[in-house]
Write a protein that binds this DNA or RNA. Structure first.
Lengths: 159, 159
DNA sequence: TATTGTTATACTCTATAACTATA
DNA sequence: TATAGTTATAGAGTATAACAATA
């Protein structure tokens, strides 16, 4: 029994002891690890059941930018048009948003949350904000702010 | 012509002008953007053709940890066992690595690069190191070091 | 000609569960 | 019983190209 446990430990230890080399300095590798952890946290979060990160980001962005074009949302979120079409179709089928052809350009679609969609976002917004806080639980307030600022600079987005 | 261009600009502008709200402070969102950009850079990199990031990370880790167990590599890279089996099978079929059943535990497999695999990694190592540098091109040396340190702390890994 | 959104297809990564062989 | 690795299946995310309608 004790022997088995030690053996297990030593194997786990072996995995942790593997040298990372230059991989430990690779933002790409570290960012992948970070994303795995964040997704796990998102799916385990209280109050964010029934919605995936990508879907929530669309609904949230639509809630603070009512009437934004589908393509504009896609570009801001860096979701490809083709993928966006599928996601939005799904959200429309769930009655969380509706689409409206604007007068000026009949190719385009403007996105509005339905009443249910607005309620959906409102109800989950606190859990989402809590999630953004829990993401940085291992960091101090200053460190968290620095990380966010560096990621802004890294990705080149306007916050 | 000039009118078209202005119209296009104004649409692009519209996309960039959408409010991000709390999404702009979400490490999850920012990390996703960062990963999209890094993958793009990896696939466009000179000298990294014919290998994907995940595959290269396995070969690289195997090169500096000869004889590591398949499961130990998987845990260190946070790749699930099932996925690892498929990836390693593919790399073995390409003659980049070989597997050896160790004496002590006949369930396990130890991974060694083949001569071709070692050459493969050696040839691409400079491009990979260059890639890790280019990833942080928008940041100063200090900022890049801070970002890496914060991501280490964030992910809780031992560098 | 260019743009908006759609459809279809494919590939990668991930997750799960059931399986074998070993321990 | 638990572990190492495999197989099979499914689901998300992404990428591309071809398409219709509109500009």
């Amino acid at each position: 029994m004790a022997g088995d446990k030690v053996a297990t430990r030593s194997i786990m230890h072996e995995a942790e002891d593997l040298e990372l080399g230059a991989l430990g300095g690779s933002v790409g590798f570290l960012v992948r690890l970070a994303q795995l952890e964040i997704f796990e946290m998102f799916y385990e979060a209280e109050g964010l059941e029934g919605v995936r990160p990508g879907e929530f980001s669309i609904l949230y962005l639509a809630s603070i930018n009512p009437g934004a074009r589908q393509g504009a949302l896609a570009r801001r979120l860096r979701i490809k048009r083709a993928h966006m079409a599928k996601l939005v179709t799904g959200l429309e089928a769930r009655d969380l948003l509706r689409r409206e052809v604007p007068e000026g350009d009949r190719r385009a679609l403007r996105i509005f949350l339905t009443e249910g969609g607005a309620r959906f976002v409102e109800e989950r917004a606190p859990a989402f904000l809590d999630q953004t806080r829990r993401e940085t639980a291992r960091l101090s307030t200053d460190e968290a702010a620095t990380l966010v600022a560096l990621l802004h600079k890294f990705t080149g987005i306007r916050p």
